[in-house]
Design a protein around this nucleic acid. Structure first.
Ligand SMILES: [Zn+2]
Ligand SMILES: [Zn+2]
Ligand SMILES: [Zn+2]
Ligand SMILES: [Zn+2]
Lengths: 161, 161
DNA sequence: GAATTATATGTAATGATATAACATATCAAG
DNA sequence: CTTGATATGTTATATCATTACATATAATTC
């Protein structure tokens, strides 16, 4: 089975299973608790393979027998984001599974304003001009949010404006 | 009078008056309506010289005799953002007056996680690796959000952790 | 300059996103 | 087994943002 991954197709089943295996191994190595609700949250993000709001994720967790209140989703999502298994897309207040699981990276997103599809890209940490600005200011960067908004290939055709 | 601007001091009164003059001229040239509520909103952002939530801005507008309901602030802020007089810091759901008023630019922010001070920097649009990723994907970038989170110079001393 | 259209403002109601606080349960270490 | 740390569940509340609609002002057309 294939499914859209960003703007292309790919083997979705393998993609899910790889990401779960990677997360499991990462947690085992660091003695992090990859608990059922955290695992299920990652599964939900991976299965949908697009950005999801916390309440949408929560609906799936509730349906799977976990708690039904917002902190259930927010805590699991915070765990996944903290350890790099998922990212928060700040411009959408939404979450997405990481497409480069395992690799340490600065995530960057291409967000289509028409169809809301999001593709994760990788950028060079200090090669974006921001590093220079931070050095000049004496600012110590810990995390970077890089999000581009525009039109994806297919939406450029349907809305050529 | 001087006031913190990002991480340094500067002549704040001149900074406010320059930005208002620039906005006024820009609007006059394009026949945009720089109405009292829009002007006051920019004044409020400029006077505080830091990020402000929409409801905090709304409080000042209400106190100045404008409407007291959220759309009053959101509409004025949207106008300012649309025309480049202010920016939204997505990672904080907050707004800040532009520090480079008049110049067309891709805004980038250095956000201190401890004191919440935000400094605006400028980056080269297509020189940040994101341009390459977008070209590869056939994605047409219209707008970019670039926000670095970390510790500002003074907070590095007080929290050297 | 009156009629028409577009733009802007004010308000009420609601929706969407996120956290604080606290009780209970489970896990890790001594 | 006891203790302390971590994780989960629930209630309530805080914070951010929009829809819908009425009224007012500005720009355009005749
Ligand atoms: Zn990633
Ligand atoms: Zn699209
Ligand atoms: Zn700016
Ligand atoms: Zn600081």
């Amino acid at each position: 089975m294939t499914k859209a991954h960003g703007f292309h197709q790919h083997d979705h089943a393998a993609c899910i299973s790889d990401a779960l295996t990677t997360a499991e191994a990462y947690c085992a190595a660091r003695k992090l608790q990859f608990t059922p609700v955290r695992r299920r949250t990652l599964e939900v993000l991976l299965a949908h393979h697009r950005t999801m709001g916390a309440y949408e994720v929560l609906g799936h967790l509730d349906a799977s027998g976990f708690g039904a209140q917002p902190p259930v989703a927010y805590r699991a999502l915070d765990f996944l984001v903290k350890h790099g298994f998922a990212h928060k897309v700040e411009a959408m207040n939404a979450y997405v599974a990481c497409s480069h699981s395992g690799a340490q990276h600065v995530p960057a997103f291409l967000i289509c304003r028409q169809c809301s599809t999001v593709q994760e890209a990788q950028i060079e940490p200090m090669q974006n001009g921001l590093g220079d600005a931070a050095n000049d200011a004496g600012f110590a960067i810990e995390r970077a949010v890089v999000e581009a908004q525009g039109l994806c290939p297919s939406c450029q055709q349907s809305a050529p404006e």
